[in-house]
């Protein structure tokens, strides 16, 4: 492997990682508070979960394509990719946050109310801590799938490891495809293992 290729793999891997981290960060910042809100508003819950569900069913290449012509959020470059990746990451985080909080034993919740806890105290001291394992599981699923989906972002000029894959396809060069696919796969495995480890650490109680 030439020195140049190695450097390029490293730099594209960092670009890829950056795309994923920004997307997951934004998605989590929206979906965790959003999930908490949805547990408070049963009426909103169905609509929002349905929206997130639909977003996930749109083929990713098509979604990138749809976003391109939209003013402000669309266009060539990483920001369009980040928006699309966020939309994909929303569902698992949102759904797991809702399930984690609504899944708290109603007896525990009743006791919390009866002991004189306020709704805020119940949220921060009871519901969220008990939901942590599920929220983290949602983050893990979202991260692993986003690492994969982000390879397609290269199609709209967002960079990342997908650059190798698209070049490889265009030039029918299997080695080039692998130069993008293998680091992406390794990144996904590392993210999965790492987040699973944190999840176990935090849910031991």
């Amino acid at each position: 492997m030439s020195q140049r290729l190695a450097t390029e793999i490293v730099s594209l891997s960092f670009e890829h990682l950056w795309l994923v981290l920004i997307s997951i960060g934004v998605a989590a910042a929206l979906a965790i508070p959003g999930g908490v809100l949805l547990t408070r508003r049963a009426g909103l819950r169905r609509g929002m979960l349905a929206f997130a569900n639909v977003m996930q069913t749109v083929p990713s290449l098509a979604l990138f394509g749809f976003l391109l012509p939209i003013p402000f959020i669309g266009g060539i470059g990483p920001h369009t990719a980040i928006i699309a990746l966020c939309l994909y990451a929303l569902l698992p985080i949102l759904r797991n946050t809702v399930v984690g909080i609504t899944g708290v034993d109603p007896i525990v919740r009743e006791a919390a109310v009866a002991m004189g806890m306020t709704p805020n105290q119940i949220l921060w001291q009871v519901e969220l801590p008990l939901a942590v394992p599920l929220v983290l599981a949602g983050l893990r699923i979202a991260t692993v799938t986003t690492i994969g989906t982000a390879t397609i972002a290269a199609a709209i000029g967002a960079g990342g490891l997908g650059v190798f894959i698209f070049q490889g396809i265009a030039s029918v060069d299997a080695a080039m495809i692998l130069a993008g696919a293998i680091p992406a796969a390794l990144m996904a495995i590392a993210a999965d293992e790492g987040l699973e480890w944190i999840e176990k650490k935090l849910s031991r109680v």
Partner: peptide
């Protein structure tokens, strides 16, 4: 909230916080 803190409450299924 204040009143409930002055009323002890014990239920069949305990309702302890598992964490």
């Amino acid at each position: 909230y204040r009143m409930r803190r002055f009323i002890g409450y014990v239920i069949q299924d305990f309702g302890l916080f598992p964490h």
